[in-house]
Design a binder for these strands. Structure first.
Lengths: 225, 225
DNA sequence: TAGATTGTTAATCGATTAACAATC
DNA sequence: TAGATTGTTAATCGATTAACAATC
């Protein structure tokens, strides 16, 4: 056994975990329109997954569907929320109240999705005291106290590139275990801490490849839809 | 042959393409500090990839390194830029000049990374004429003309969820082939168009799983770093 | 020459797909 | 019963890893 990356008990692969939020979103939409039951074929269509992958993913969460019938929407929502650790709202600390941080704080989907923005911090004294979403901007000096008080394990980093690494280190030292990094830099963190990076350039560069790749090939006829 | 997803000539796998921007970023940093040569071990360390994956990825771009020596930084930058289709700056259209759109427009790394923000569009008449980054906000009525005039194939969608699908359709009809979607909705697009989605909730929910997973297991002792 | 490092091959690992028996 | 749909198995596919020969 070299690297047992799977968690204790939960036998969910990385790709499976990355698809669960998408299922959850589609299920919320279905629930919102009063749908109580859904088939793997329908949910797959809504999320872009294949029906086989979907059934396999869901089978990993327990005996949720009924053969010949489908899946109960509410049960599925509960099971996925539980698997992701979102049964109780997860407190999230946001560092950075600039343009990007403000936009993220205003995101209207935290509560609905098992997340709760519990604090916004910034180093700029002029921003302290201003409203962002449902909270008031605090000084970054209060970082450690805030993370501890909220028992937060998730944080969003929307600070200038030059500050990202040191703020990340303070967050981790205070107890943060999952970091969503919007600064264009590769953070170094200790084992046991997960970083996900969102970088505008990276995303656009990947898209650039795909659009460049799909030039009309040597065969003259363009592919029909 | 069922689904030849690889492009004409360029034999780059999806995971390889998604790693190239990271290499490019590390190389820019190296070049900035005057480094002219780098080994796969060092570049791997900087980007978090394994040296073997890195060499394999780069081998797909041509004969770039020299055995016993390493890779020339400048040559590598050129080769990756070429592979991604960024030798000439790619024009990018941004739709949405609200909080998020404004933050994205202010992103200071477009030019350095082979991208050029060529227009910002919004439906709100009060925003039209305001500066965002290096450009002035135009009416969304000019969407088709703008995309055509710039020959843009990449666009960023930072509009309200309810508007995302219809704006996406207009962009695609005007010639956009790669869409970076910040709205929390699964866009339906025709074949040949690539969508990448950035969703705050999705990212945080994935992080929630990882931090929940890493609870101390049944064995008493916490894992040492 | 000796040491270093790439490019490449073969082995391993893991995920997806297709098919179908179980079961509602 | 007949039709539908899940849960699961086996086959396929693709990526990563480890090792090393080639070569600077």
């Amino acid at each position: 056994m070299t690297d047992p990356r799977r968690g204790p008990g939960t036998g969910l692969s990385r790709p499976t975990v990355s698809r669960l939020p998408g299922y959850l979103r589609a299920l919320s939409s279905l629930a919102g329109s009063g749908t109580v039951r859904v088939s793997s074929a329908e949910l797959a269509r809504l999320t872009g997954a294949s029906p086989a992958v979907l059934r396999r993913d869901l089978a990993g969460l327990g005996q949720l569907g009924r053969r010949g019938v489908g899946y109960p929407v509410a049960t599925l929502q509960q099971a996925i929320s539980q698997a992701l650790g979102l049964v109780e709202d997860q407190p999230v600390v946001l560092v950075g109240a600039g343009h990007l941080g403000s936009a993220l704080a205003g995101y209207a989907g935290f509560e609905d999705r098992g997340l709760r923005l519990c604090a916004v911090l910034d180093a700029d004294p002029r921003l302290i005291g201003q409203r962002r979403g449902a909270v008031v901007v605090q000084s970054i000096d209060e970082l450690e106290d805030t993370v501890t008080a909220a028992a937060a394990r998730l944080a969003i980093l929307a600070v200038p590139t030059g500050a990202a690494q040191s703020v990340a280190e303070r967050l981790v030292a205070a107890g943060i275990r999952g970091l969503l990094n919007f600064a264009p830099v590769d953070l170094a963190v200790p084992a046991g801490v997960t970083v996900r990076a969102v970088d505008l350039s990276t995303e656009l560069q990947i898209l650039a490849f795909h659009q460049a790749e799909l030039r009309p090939g040597p065969t003259g006829a363009p592919p029909s839809p």
